[in-house]
């Protein structure tokens, strides 16, 4: 697969649009889902997906093979999505306060039943900061190793691990809160 992806990029670099079609069909769903997890807005996500694929088309010749093609594409998606978030008005997204999330983390066994409720998990994931949501998505939806996630989001491996740690604590606290309110 990796070899085939690189061949697609080589063909794209030579202006072969059928290679772009193939590449798009292969990656579009995955890239869209990643962007959507960061932006929480389907219109913006479709827009950013278009920007990402456009960038892939323009930069295909510059791919050096130092990472997997999927890592490279998701990295572009990460940066494009961050650009979009920065252009949004401040205060548009409501994110869980990390300070609050750190306070008195519930016991994992107590929040397990809450974590089995899809709707509540989604509610809590949506409240995470963009950085935490990205790591959760890449680790749990894409099943990527922490090293690859670090390449995608452009930070040290230690930061990826810490973000995941804080995300987990925030999710546990949120789920426990919903349980306490009788929403589960």
């Amino acid at each position: 697969m990796a070899q085939e992806d690189q061949e697609l990029l080589s063909r794209m670099a030579n202006g072969d649009q059928s290679a772009l079609d193939e590449f798009y069909r292969q990656y579009e769903g995955r890239v869209y889902r990643f962007i959507r997890s960061k932006l929480n807005d389907s219109f913006d996500a479709a827009d950013v997906l278009n920007e990402v694929m456009f960038e892939v088309w323009r930069s295909a010749g510059r791919f050096e093979g130092r990472s997997a093609v999927s890592t490279w594409v998701l990295g572009i998606a990460h940066h494009k999505a961050i650009d979009r978030i920065r252009r949004r008005k401040p205060g548009e997204s409501v994110e869980l306060d990390p300070e609050l999330a750190e306070d008195e983390t519930p016991n994992p066994a107590e929040t397990l039943s809450a974590a089995q409720n899809a709707e509540q998990v989604r509610t809590c994931v949506d409240q995470l900061s963009e950085a935490h949501r990205s790591v959760v998505h890449l680790a749990f939806f894409e099943d990527l190793p922490y090293g690859e996630i670090a390449s995608i989001v452009g930070c040290p491996e230690g930061t990826v691990k810490t973000r995941m740690f804080h995300a987990k604590k925030a999710l546990m606290k949120c789920l426990a809160g919903l349980k306490e309110m009788g929403l589960l």
Binding site: P108, A109, L112, A115, R122, V125, V136, H137, F140, K168
Partner: peptide
């Protein structure tokens, strides 16, 4: 707990 969370994220 993490396995349950991963399962929900995957099925979303």
């Amino acid at each position: 707990l993490l396995s349950a969370l991963r399962g929900q994220v995957k099925e979303e």
